[in-house]
Design a protein around this nucleic acid. Sequence first.
DNA 1: AAAGTCATGTCAGCTGCTGTCATCAGTACT
DNA 2: AGTACTGATGACAGCAGCTGACATGACTTT
Lengths: 197, 197
Amino acid sequence: MGRWEPNARGRLAQAAIELYGERGFDRTTVAEIAARAGLTERTFFRHYSDKREVLFAGSEAMAERLVAAVAAAPGSAPPLATVAVALEEVGAAIQESRGRDFARARRSIIVSNPELQERELIKLASWAGTLAGALRDRGVDETTATLAAQTGVAVFHVAFGRWVSNDDELDLPALIRDSLTILSALTAAVDQSAAVA
Amino acid sequence: MGRWEPNARGRLAQAAIELYGERGFDRTTVAEIAARAGLTERTFFRHYSDKREVLFAGSEAMAERLVAAVAAAPGSAPPLATVAVALEEVGAAIQESRGRDFARARRSIIVSNPELQERELIKLASWAGTLAGALRDRGVDETTATLAAQTGVAVFHVAFGRWVSNDDELDLPALIRDSLTILSALTAAVDQSAAVA
DNA sequence: AAAGTCATGTCAGCTGCTGTCATCAGTACT
DNA sequence: AGTACTGATGACAGCAGCTGACATGACTTT
């Protein structure tokens, strides 16, 4: 038995998410979060670098999965397919670990606040950077790697939006594959119209 | 002759950019910016909603150009091609109005600060949202529109990075076209490998 | 038992940002 | 000419996010 109640970090996260849901993100102060968790404001900042971080913890772990998945892909696989497979794996992990309802609740907090949207975007951008690095490690050139990574993340973003906002029967990995197929059609159409001109 | 020196907004912008360059973004306070411009802190916030905004003013004007360009495209053009043309136009405008050197200086301030990168990303995301809306107005369905817009912006982002960091002879619109071509090859490769499997 | 560690508490302080009211040149209207 | 209105700025007070520095006390190691 420690001197304090255990799992301070978890209590802070729970308190924060409850409050963000109850009164909105910017109408809850860090002092309130800490109070509900039975801790002090200073301690909050020892666990989370800022007020937003609570909603984005775990994102680095996903980034590591992305790297591992890219490294595990067969060398012959084309870059964008490799990226897609890695993102499908992460999609499956997200789907299983927390489920669509949690994602929806979290999303509704995020969309109502620009600061949080910024953080969401930088998380995705960081994934793109990670993926691009992993591709470069496989010998893909800089521009191609960046392009494949960014495009893959854009596809993921679209698929995630569909997964959260619709009640499709489709699961997240399937939506990622589907979105990538749509993208293929889009680029093919550009090529065709360019060839005609 | 007004009661005050003219062009307060411009003086604030210049003072801010100078200071960001001299001592870094987070080591300059708003009070210092205001003092150098001969104004007060409060007045700074009347012209710019926050400290970062100085570096991103004018982005909404570009968004309007995007909408206009999409609306002006022939109805028969495929979605992604329409987006690409709009982004090429904005790319040309950026290139002409401020030039590569200014973009480089601005970039070096931004990359050294996460908060600024977030803002840059949200600017791009907002462009994507704008583009998607403009496509929907032309009858493109939701998913396709979002995908084309996000992908287009990703292509722009990559092209912009190449333009700023290399000393290619290529201008920005050409780099956008080139990056889109590379993307086409990437998706085509995915289709091909999927067909084999 | 002495020493070290580790998570937390306490406190002081900076800075970004906002609300509110005062000031006063220029403009328009009478 | 006088008066009222507008619009940009100043002055001031205050909140909240975030940080540095030091204290505390249970648990661990030696």
